[in-house]
Design a binder for these strands. Structure first.
Length: 922
RNA sequence: GCCGAUGUGGCGAAAUGGCAGACGCAGGGGACUUAAAAUCCCCUGACCGGAAACGGUCGUGCGGGUUCGAGUCCCGCCAUCGGCACCA
């Protein structure tokens, strides 16, 4: 991987980095404190903010800043260089905000339920717990070796019973709640009122169970034979499992569902209240897929049956020349005529055996059969044929459509293929062909006995016809969503068991019942074999003793999907040890920032956090699933009074992908995977962190370059040599070569700083260089422009290297700027520098962030580019405050410029003070 | 097909509508060295002219436009990447 022999070490990072990581661990430097928690007198946070041994409440603490990483699934392969990209960015910001006086919460944990550990268990019989623990240990070692300032006392693990107890508890909250359409929020199931006819307890139970936010459905689901489980819609891509790419089939099964569709509107609307990228919001909007239209009833000729369709174009009702039902539609059986029955049956069985992939491939070649039945178009009484076709989906809208071939692409293709009539009802603007025209135009041929739309523009026609339909009781305004309810059960072992048991009533019907909170956590049983049973039951069925309860009830055998644990982990970080609730309310109010405006504890007074997580950083792969599910749970918990903000993640940033050196996606098969461990051995954590940030903008996809690591590594070497005496360095290197590695750390004390580093007044030029750097680094950190912040520090160091005397005060401030990026070497030099000038070093991590002084940045003279007709011809130097006339005169004096003015008439002069001059001639 | 993002040197990239290519990598030259590594200094968008100093022309995916001035703003294309994809 790393070509050539190991280069000479630029500085002893191999001693410095473990030293400071151990120091931070021992001191608990980055621990965050909950309201009411006692602050140790000598903790740097307490010292910085002037609390000594007190226990400030929320109002007394500084404003919070919650910086969250998407926690990893600890895979057996260990960390790859993509993980630490986001982690480094958040760590830099966490350290920066701490220095600014905010009270930073920056935690890490493990999303540790999941399939790989279970599949390993199936192969080897090793309990997933063991695999998981080993993988977590690897990940933790790797992450810790990068020197991130996590508060490890808040570490969470979704597979820890003390954690998943509360995952199960949240499920119970969903189970015990319903969505009240009148209030548009979740309420306890006890507020549900029963309609007349719900007399018996069995009837009431059925009514109630059908309205819970967590409910059981018999609907067809995606079954993956290879994985031995069902998958959510979102986990199926092109008829294959997202994980592993195995084939999946449709299969009716009894499954737990979560009623996320009830929240579709709020999930959509509240996107406006949060700071996410537009593209990410758009992806969520598309996924929710809200569309407005109308439902219209069509009567079937010769029967009382009505077919309800959903359409976004009720204005084209006069152009409906046939209808299509989904093959699975309930009415197909009833309306099909004797002559057509055989063909319909054949078509239905063909489509049901089709995989989703086959259906997708048939997009261009539409199929379908006539049922023999006719329907009546309510606007003009026309009889139109009813077909079935698999281009109509049973799961969307009503599973039936009115087909308007003139103005719908799919209907047009179908009608063309089967020779069905095509009638124009919309006149396109500017003379375009009306066939297949699907955009807005003006209604034509749309006059019936009772209603006429002719001449109306599309939006108005929609309104007119919808009002008419409503008045006649034939239809109504309707909103539909692509979003489906969330399939929440999996036939797996390594997941949270449901806190649910099943009982059988007198008639033999099974019904479900929640376990009491006192039964939590429901632990998974011990098993010898983690495979599903031969008869297709989930693996938990193998634990026969566990399944049967003494009172005759039977446990739910499904487990929850991996998303469950990651839906709320950001809340558990707030109060990870709480045994009485998922999160204490004081902690929740403080860290999620919904508490009252504080008077300003600490020295960050006046600052104010935002509601929710201040900054959440992670990959785009979670743009829809995790982020939508977590928002949904958060809103339910909000409705139920468990949390106090409507949205969990106020600001979200997606880090870009890191590609291999060859510009391809990193993968084992391509052999282009870069292991952070190798980089760390060679260049150290500080160089690694710096390079990950120097590569380019955080959000962008960019290729790895180990040569690039060497560049920032050389920069850190220059920083080192800016401080350290060359002779002492040589001595140190020689001593290091003959010292036992275990004793080597003590040698650090032999290092002396250069005599050029001294107490003394900086020159104006030195101050200007420093303050330009402060300004640039500070502004770039605010804008997450880490790459340009680093380049500013490089420029500072390049200049500082030329100074024969290096004022300690200037170097000290520079170390503060460098510290968030390269904390280990900064700490070491910070300590040495203070020793060198005979001062006690305060905690670098909590030293107040420097502010730049604009007055120091002012130059006496400035260079002004001179353009003639917009082209650069010369650069003149003028006094900094020079007025337009002065600048213009200087420009005209330039011989180079004069050459371009000769024989020309000066028509116009544009002077932008301090910026440029443009002389327009002709 | 629809939605979104991105196109700048050999490479990663930088530029509130105002000196395009900062910073870094790679490359070239030099200093130090017996030599190499490391380090330090200089050069490095293309083309034309010039011995050189230097001067000129072109140049931010393509074509138009706005403007004294466009990588940046507007219109129309093209390409790459990501998401969705028979959602009525």
């Amino acid at each position: 991987m790393l070509a050539g022999p190991m280069a000479r070490r630029q500085y002893p990072f191999h001693l410095i980095e473990p030293k400071w990581q151990q120091h931070w661990d021992a001191e608990g430097t980055f621990k965050a404190f909950n309201p009411g928690e006692a602050l140790p007198a000598h903790h740097p946070f307490a010292v910085r903010h002037g609390y000594s041994g007190t226990a400030p409440d929320a109002a007394g603490l500084p404003p919070k800043f919650y910086i969250l990483d998407m926690f990893p699934y600890p895979s057996g392969a260990g960390l790859h260089v993509g993980h630490p990209e986001g982690y480094t960015a958040t760590d830099i910001l966490a350290r920066y905000r701490r220095a600014q006086g905010w009270h930073v919460l920056h935690p890490m944990g493990w999303d540790a339920f999941g399939l790989p550990a279970e599949q390993y268990a199936i192969r080897t019989g090793q309990h997933p717990r063991k695999t998981t623990e080993a993988n977590i240990a690897t990940f933790k070692r790797q992450i810790k070796s990068l020197g991130f300032s996590y508060d490890w006392s808040r570490e969470v693990d979704t597979t820890d019973p003390k954690y998943f107890r509360w995952t199960q508890w949240i499920f119970l909250q969903l189970y015990h709640a319903w969505f009240n359409p009148a209030t548009q929020r979740a309420e306890p199931i006890s507020t549900l009122s029963y309609p007349a006819g719900c007399e018996t307890e069995a009837q009431r139970r059925e009514y109630r169970d059908a309205r819970r936010l967590a409910y059981v459905s018999q609907a067809p689901v995606w079954w993956c034979e290879a994985l031995g489980t069902v998958l959510a819609n979102e986990e199926v891509i092109d008829g294959r499992s997202e994980v592993g790419g195995h084939p999946v089939v449709r299969k009716p099964m009894r499954q737990w569902m979560l009623r996320i569709t009830a929240y579709a509107d709020r999930l959509l609307a509240d996107l406006e209240t949060i700071q996410w990228s537009d593209s990410l919001k758009q992806m969520q909007r598309n996924w929710i897929g809200r569309s407005e239209g109308a439902e219209v009833d069509f009567e079937v000729v010769g029967s009382g049956d009505k077919i309800r369709v959903f359409t976004t174009r009720p204005d084209t009702l006069f152009g409906a020349t046939y209808m299509v039902l989904a093959p699975e539609h309930a009415l197909v059986e009833r309306i099909t005529t004797v002559e057509c029955r055989a063909a319909v049956e054949r078509y239905r069985s063909e489509t049901s055996s089709k995989s989703d992939r086959d259906r997708t491939e048939s997009v261009l070649d539409k199929t379908g059969v006539f049922t023999g039945a006719l329907a009546i178009n309510p606007v003009n009484g026309q009889h139109i044929p009813i077909w079935i076709a698999d281009y109509v989906l049973a799961s969307y809208g009503t599973g039936a459509i009115m087909a308007v071939p003139a103005h719908d692409t799919r209907d047009y293709e179908f009608a063309t293929k089967f020779g069905l009539p095509i009638v124009q009802v919309v006149e396109p603007p500017n003379g375009r062909d009306w066939r297949g025209f699907v955009d807005d135009g003006v209604a034509v041929n749309s006059a019936g006995p009772e209603v006429c739309l002719d001449g109306l523009p599309t939006p108005e026609a929609k309104r007119r016809i919808t009002d008419w339909l409503a008045a006649k009781g034939l239809g109504q305004r309707m909103v539909n969503y692509k979003l489906r309810d969330w399939l929440f059960s999996r036939q797996r072992y390594w997941g949270e068991p449901f806190p649910i048991v099943w009982r059988t009533d007198a008639t033999g019907e099974p019904w479900h019942e929640a376990l009491p909170e006192s039964a939590l956590p429901v632990m998974p049983p011990a098993l010898d074999d983690y495979k599903p049973t031969p008869d297709g039951q989930p693996p938990l069925a193998r634990a026969t003793d566990w399944v049967r309860l003494p009172d005759g009830a039977v446990r739910e055998l499904n487990t929850m999907p991996q998303w469950a644990g990651s839906c709320w982990y950001y809340l558990r970080y707030l109060d990870p040890g709480n045994g009485a609730g998922m999160v204490g309310s004081d902690a929740e109010r403080y860290w999620m920032g919904s508490g009252v405006a504080r008077s300003g504890g600490g020295d960050a007074g006046g600052k104010r956090g935002v509601p929710g997580v201040d900054l959440y950083v992670g990959g785009t792969e979670h743009a829809v699933l995790h982020l939508l599910y977590a928002r949904f749970w958060h809103k339910v918990l909000f409705d139920l009074g468990q949390v106090t903000t409507p949205e969990p993640f106020f600001r979200l940033v997606n880090q870009g992908l890191i590609l291999g050196e060859d510009g391809q996606k990193m993968s084992k098969s391509r052999g282009n995977v870069v292991n952070p461990d190798d980089i760390l051995v060679e260049y150290g954590a500080d160089a690694f962190r710096l390079y990950e940030m120097f590569m380019g903008p955080l959000q962008e996809t960019k290729p790895w370059s180990t040569k690039g690591v060497e560049g920032v590594y050389r920069f850190l070497g220059r920083v080192w040599r800016l401080f350290v005496d060359e002779a002492a360095e040589t001595e140190f290197e020689q001593a290091l070569a003959v010292t036992e590695p275990s004793q080597a750390r003590g040698l650090l004390d032999r290092l002396r700083l250069s005599a050029s580093v001294a107490v003394g007044d900086p020159t104006p030029a030195q101050l200007r260089a420093l303050h330009a750097c402060i300004r640039k680094v500070t502004e770039d950190l605010e804008g997450l422009r880490f790459n340009t912040a680093i380049s500013a520090m490089m420029m500072f160091v390049n200049e500082a290297m030329t100074w024969s005397t290096r004022p300690a005060a200037v170097l000290k401030t520079f170390l503060q700027l460098l510290a968030p990026f390269a904390p280990h070497v900064s700490e070491e030099l910070w300590q040495r520098l203070h020793g060198h000038i005979g001062q006690a070093p305060g905690s670098l991590g909590y030293a107040a962030w420097p502010e730049f002084d604009p007055a120091l940045l002012v130059e006496e003279t400035v260079e002004i580019p001179v353009q003639v007709n917009g082209k650069l011809r010369d650069v003149v130097r003028v006094p900094a405050g020079a007025g337009p006339a002065e600048v213009e005169a200087a420009a005209k004096e330039s011989p180079k410029v004069q050459a371009f003015l000769a024989d020309k008439t000066l028509r116009k002069v544009i002077v932008v003070p301090g910026k440029m001059v443009n002389l327009v001639v002709g």
